[in-house]
Computed example of a mutant assay.
Amino acid sequence: MSTEKCFANGSATPGPVPKGHIRLYSMRFCPFAQRTRLVLNAKGITYDTVNIHLKDKPDWFLEKNPLGLVPTLETPAGEVIYESPITCEYLDEVYPEKKLLPSSPFAKAQQKMMLEHFSKVIPYFYKIPTGRKNGEDVSGLEADLKEKFAKLNACLVNKKTKFFGGDSITMIDYMMWPWFERAEAYQFKQFLDGTPELKKWTELMLQDSAVKAIMFSPDAHKAFFKTFLDGNPDFDYGL
């Protein structure tokens, strides 16, 4: 796991991407960038990491990715790829060892459709803690999130598989995992009690070598998330 401090505006431009490597522009606590880190680690790809200060982005980074978002990949040839699903699919195609996406077009489409469904879940991980902090009534949002967890649980029940793509980890599992790693920090862990198959899935994911290689403890997530909610995120927390 990279422990490099983030690059802010005014920082020197990193040198060229070494031959035989790929570079990941990231932020240590970003769940979207974690998707790409999981795929890089699962596939055993040699990469280096440049962490970006997302509140004070370097001009040189904005030249590479005008959206200023992480994850962003850069190849030794200067090719730049961004948006987490796109970076992950790119890595799976360019590094064909240990394929994470299914070869069947229909099975691949199923994973992409499931990802679209999961994208509707993600906002709740931010709306609910923000609402709690502001003293708002978030019971309706919590009920909605529990319902969405129940649907994910039903998906596993109907499939009769350990993971969302089968009995081994595939791309969709890595795409969903970062938010569940943060469930305790966001005070959502108790919501999993009513979804036994989903809870079992989280326990199996915690045993995965790629997950273990880059994960943070619940306390670290909690500490960073507090700075995020306070409006002054400490991107270098713990360094």
Rank of each mutant, 00 (worst) to 15 (best):
Lys57Pro: 02
His117Asn: 11
Leu198Ser: 06
Asp208Leu: 05
Lys108Glu: 08
Arg182Tyr: 03
Val39Phe: 06
Met113Ala: 14
Gly231His: 06
Ser119Phe: 04
Gly44Leu: 10
Gly140Pro: 02
Gln207Phe: 01
His21Gly: 00
Lys159Gln: 15
Asp236Lys: 08
Pro96Cys: 10
Phe224Ala: 02
Pro102Gln: 04
Ser2Arg: 07
Phe228Ile: 02
Ser104Asn: 13
Asp137Gln: 08
Thr75Ser: 13
Glu197Asp: 12
Phe180Gln: 06
Ser168Pro: 00
Met27Tyr: 04
Pro233His: 07
Ile128Cys: 05
Ile122Tyr: 05
Arg37Tyr: 00
Cys6Leu: 01
Pro123Lys: 04
Phe191Asp: 11
Arg23Thr: 10
Thr130Lys: 15
His221Pro: 06
Ile172Thr: 07
Ser209Pro: 00
Gln110Cys: 12
Thr87Lys: 02
Lys162Phe: 12
Arg35Lys: 14
Lys99Met: 09
Ile45Lys: 09
Ala143Glu: 13
Gly165Tyr: 01
Lys222Trp: 00
Glu116Tyr: 08
Ala107His: 10
Lys160Pro: 01
Tyr237Pro: 00
Ala223Glu: 15
Ala109Leu: 13
Phe188Leu: 13
Lys133Gln: 14
Leu101Tyr: 15
Glu83Asp: 14
Leu198Asp: 03
Glu63Cys: 02
Asp234Thr: 08
Leu198Val: 05
Thr87Pro: 09
Pro102Cys: 07
Pro96Ser: 08
Pro105Lys: 10
Asp59Leu: 10
Gly231Phe: 08
Thr46Ser: 14
Val17Arg: 10
Pro178Arg: 05
Tyr124Pro: 00
His53Pro: 00
Cys6Phe: 12
Lys5Glu: 11
Thr227Lys: 08
Trp179Asp: 07
Lys148Gln: 14
Leu91Lys: 07
Phe7Ala: 11
Lys160Leu: 00
Gly15Trp: 09
Lys148His: 07
Ser2Asp: 14
Lys212Gln: 15
Gln190Cys: 04
Val157Thr: 14
Pro196Thr: 12
Asp236His: 10
Ala77Gly: 12
Glu181Trp: 03
Pro58Met: 02
Phe225Cys: 00
Val94Tyr: 03
Glu79Ile: 06
Lys226Ser: 13
Val80Glu: 08
Asn134Thr: 04
Gly140Asp: 09
Val121Pro: 00
Glu83Met: 08
Asp234Arg: 04
Glu74Ser: 10
Leu156Lys: 09
Thr36Cys: 09
Pro14Tyr: 07
Lys99Tyr: 00
Gly15Ser: 14
His117Glu: 14
Thr13Leu: 11
Ser168Arg: 13
Ser104Thr: 01
Asp167Thr: 09
Met171Ser: 07
His21Cys: 10
Gly44Phe: 06
Asp208Glu: 13
Leu152Asn: 03
Val50Ile: 15
Glu63Arg: 12
Gln110Ala: 11
Val80Tyr: 10
Asn134Lys: 15
Phe118Gln: 03
Arg23Lys: 12
Phe163Ser: 05
Pro14Lys: 10
Phe61Leu: 06
Phe235Ser: 01
Asp59Ile: 04
Pro218Tyr: 11
Tyr174Arg: 01
Arg23Met: 08
Asn51Met: 05
Asn134Trp: 01
Phe106Ala: 12
Leu54Tyr: 05
